Simulated assay, not measured.
Amino acid sequence: MDTSSSTSGELPVNSSADDAEHKQISETHFPPLPAHLQDLTDRARGYVEAASSANTRRAYAADWKHFSSWCRRQNLSPLPPDPQVVGLYITACASGGAVGSAGGTGTRESKPNSVSTIERRLSAIGWNLVQRGMTLDRKDRAIATVMAGIRNKHAAPPRQKEALLPEDLIAMLETLDRGTLRGMRDRAMLLIGFAGGLRRSEVTGLDLARDQTEDGRGWIDILDKGLLITLRGKTGWREVEVGRGSSDATCPVIAIETWIKFAKLAKGPLFRRVKGKGKDVGPDRLHDQEVARLVKRAALAAGVRGDLSESQRAHLFAGHSLRAGLASSAEVDERYVQKHLGHASAEMTRKYQRRRDRFRVNLTKAAGL
């Protein structure tokens, strides 16, 4: 919920901890240079940060802190990289012992990390070492063999978020107040997230027009027949066409137009914090986690999956529920859905299709049985 105080549930895009981590890495990667090269140094530092998303950098910074803390507790050093130390660390992660202290004193229990989390932690260690001019040999048997054993023993099918289908989305929209700025903004976010099949960072990364902010991930163009979204995604730049809906109440384009009009937006981020008891719109871009919070809050209020307990339902929905909902409900050729979502392969698109005809192609009958 939005408030005007510093304790608002809507988070700022950057935190001081992230800035400190980035500054440390940048200073390590770029040693002091002559004054006439300072401008190029600053630009190079900016390109380093642009090489990965802000979310990725935050996750990698947190993982490096986790690894460094574990090393300190074991009286080990994270630098220079030692494959045997990394192998012991991922073993501790897989067994739930990554928070224990050295010597068996002061230990506390922790849940074992999933295979995907351990793989991300390994990637984070490698990335942080590269920023410091070092390398980690993940093919070293002390790492590779342990990781192979972890995959064989602990790998499990991924837990996917529930897809929100059109009827679910319509019910969620009814829980929002159409007469408030916050309600208008939230309606626009839900509808554009669903109709555009957008990731949460893509929703909050939109600007009103091209080249208006440094941290923007794309912009919108409102046309007669719909909304053209230009995005910088994981696979490069792409365009997403969002046509006008059959009903004004559920049309994503009208929702965007309404939000822009009443919020009196002219330039900069499209989705911003609402403050001053819901009467004012601030200049700051929403944090992408607000999309997940909105989806979860509206789904619970609308009673989606009411056959489950509230605690169970709370874990079912997130930002990806909108993206999966479009992929699961759009009755068009699969290749159009793949292009719309910006997937490099049809296999990735199928992972998002929670509801589809899985036996449309019957190879058993085709083989003559």
Rank of each mutant, 00 (worst) to 15 (best):
E119G: 04
P112F: 08
N113K: 09
L76P: 07
L129N: 12
P112T: 12
P78K: 06
L76I: 08
W127M: 10
K111P: 07
I125L: 05
V115K: 00
P80N: 01
A124T: 08
A98G: 13
L76A: 10
N128M: 11
E119K: 15
V99H: 12
R120L: 06
G96A: 14
G97E: 09
P80C: 07
K111D: 15
P78A: 00
R121H: 15
I125F: 01
L129W: 11
I125Q: 03
L88A: 10
D82T: 05
V99A: 11
L88E: 13
V85A: 01
T91E: 12
S101G: 12
P78L: 07
P80F: 08
A102K: 15
S116N: 15
P112C: 04
S77K: 13
I118E: 11
G104R: 06
G97D: 07
Q84W: 08
S110Q: 13
S95E: 09
G87V: 06
P81R: 12
I118F: 08
L88Q: 14
S101I: 06
T91M: 08
I90G: 02
D82A: 03
E109F: 01
C93R: 02
A94S: 15
V99P: 07
S114F: 06
L122H: 14
R120Q: 15
A92K: 09
G104W: 05
R120C: 05
C93K: 01
R108W: 10
G97P: 05
N113P: 01
G87W: 02
N128H: 12
V86S: 00
T91F: 06
A124Q: 00
L76T: 07
V99T: 14
P81M: 04
G96Y: 05
S114K: 13
T107S: 04
P112N: 07
P81S: 04
R120D: 13
T107D: 13
G103C: 01
V99C: 07
P112Y: 05
P81F: 04
K111V: 13
V86D: 06
Y89C: 03
S95P: 00
K111I: 09
G126A: 11
G103V: 05
L129M: 14
W127S: 11
V115N: 04
V86M: 08
T117W: 11
P81V: 08
V86W: 00
R108A: 09
G126P: 03
T107K: 14
S114C: 06
L88N: 13
G87Y: 07
R121A: 04
L88H: 13
V99I: 00
A94R: 02
Y89G: 01
S114T: 15
R108V: 03
S116E: 12
P112D: 12
P80G: 06
P112W: 00
P112E: 10
I90Q: 11
D82Q: 12
L122D: 14
K111G: 14
A124G: 15
N128R: 12
I125C: 03
G96W: 00
S110F: 04
R108L: 04
S77N: 10
P112V: 11
G103N: 10
C93F: 01
S77I: 11
P112R: 07
P83W: 06
G104I: 02
K111R: 11
G106V: 00
V99K: 00
P78M: 06
A98P: 05
G106N: 03
